[in-house]
C-alpha cells in the first residue's frame, strides 16, 4: 500500500496519545476552526513551582495529519518546562512524524500553535501579562513564517512567494508571486488573512496576486 503517510503518522492517527478533555486544566487553547477544516482544542496542567507540564490532552476535528500532529505535540510537551515546550517548533513535530505531504505540513503548524497559545494563556493568567506591542514588519514576517505553502510544504517566507509587504496605518498590503488562478491561491489568501487579522492594531489585510 502506498499511502502518502509515514508509519509513525498512521500509528498516531489510529492510536492517538493524550486524547480527551481535562476538567481541572490550568490553561486551554483552541486553534483553527471547523470552517477551515481543522480544529484543535488543547488542555495543559502545570506544576506551579517547577513550571513543568504535568499533563496535556487534546481533541481534534481534523484530518489524519491533524490528529497525528496533535498526538505528537502532546507527547513532546509532556513533562517539559513551559520554556522548553515553547521552543517546540513545527519542524520538530514534522520530524517526529517522519514528515508529512507538503499540503499537510500546515497541520504541524496548527498543533504547535495550539501549544504556544495554551502556554501564553497560562502565563497571562499567572501574572505575566505582556504589553501590547505595535505591529512591526518583523512581527508580520514572523507570523507569515507559520503559513505553509501547500506546494512546497515550507513556510511562505522561505521562498520567493511573498514579493512585497507593506504596512501603513493599520493596513497590511501583501503581494504574492502566484497567479490568481493557481489551485492554492485562494487557500493561501485565507491562511495569510487568518494569521494577520487577529493582530490587535490591524484593521485590514489586502492580498494581491502579481505573477
Amino acid at each position: 500500500m502506498s499511502l502518502p503517510y509515514s508509519k509513525k503518522t498512521i500509528e498516531n492517527f489510529l492510536n492517538p496519545k493524550n486524547v480527551g478533555d481535562m476538567d481541572d486544566a490550568d490553561a486551554t487553547a483552541t486553534e483553527g476552526s471547523p470552517a477551515c477544516g481543522d480544529m484543535i482544542k488543547l488542555y495543559i496542567k502545570v506544576d506551579k513551582d517547577t513550571k513543568i507540564i504535568k499533563d496535556i490532552r487534546f481533541r481534534s476535528f481534523g484530518c489524519a495529519s491533524n490528529i497525528a500532529a496533535s498526538s505528537v505535540v502532546t507527547e513532546l510537551a509532556k513533562n517539559k518546562t513551559l520554556q522548553e515546550a515553547k521552543n517546540i517548533s513545527w519542524e520538530d513535530v514534522l520530524n517526529n512524524l517522519g514528515g508529512l505531504p507538503p499540503v499537510k505540513v500546515h497541520c504541524a503548524v496548527l498543533s504547535t500553535e495550539a501549544l504556544k497559545t495554551a502556554i501564553e494563556n497560562y502565563e497571562m493568567e499567572h501574572g505575566l501579562i505582556k504589553e501590547k506591542i505595535p505591529t512591526s514588519p518583523e512581527i508580520v514576517k514572523n507570523r507569515l513564517k507559520r503559513v505553509i505553502n501547500p506546494v512546497t510544504g515550507k513556510d511562505v517566507m522561505s521562498g520567493d512567494l511573498v514579493k512585497t509587504i507593506d504596512l501603513k496605518g493599520g493596513i497590511i498590503q501583501i503581494e504574492l508571486n502566484i497567479q490568481e488562478s493557481h489551485q492554492f491561491a485562494e487557500n493561501l489568501k485565507e491562511e495569510i488573512k487568518e494569521r494577520l487579522e487577529p493582530l490587535w492594531d490591524i484593521k485590514e489585510v489586502n492580498i494581491r496576486f502579481v505573477e
Binding site: C36, G37, C63, V103, Q183, F184, E186, N187
Partner: peptide, 11 residues
C-alpha cells in the same frame, strides 16, 4: 467533499 481531501484544499 472535505477541503483536506481536495487538490486545492477547498471544500
Amino acid at each position: 467533499g472535505s477541503a483536506c481531501f481536495s487538490k486545492s484544499l477547498q471544500a
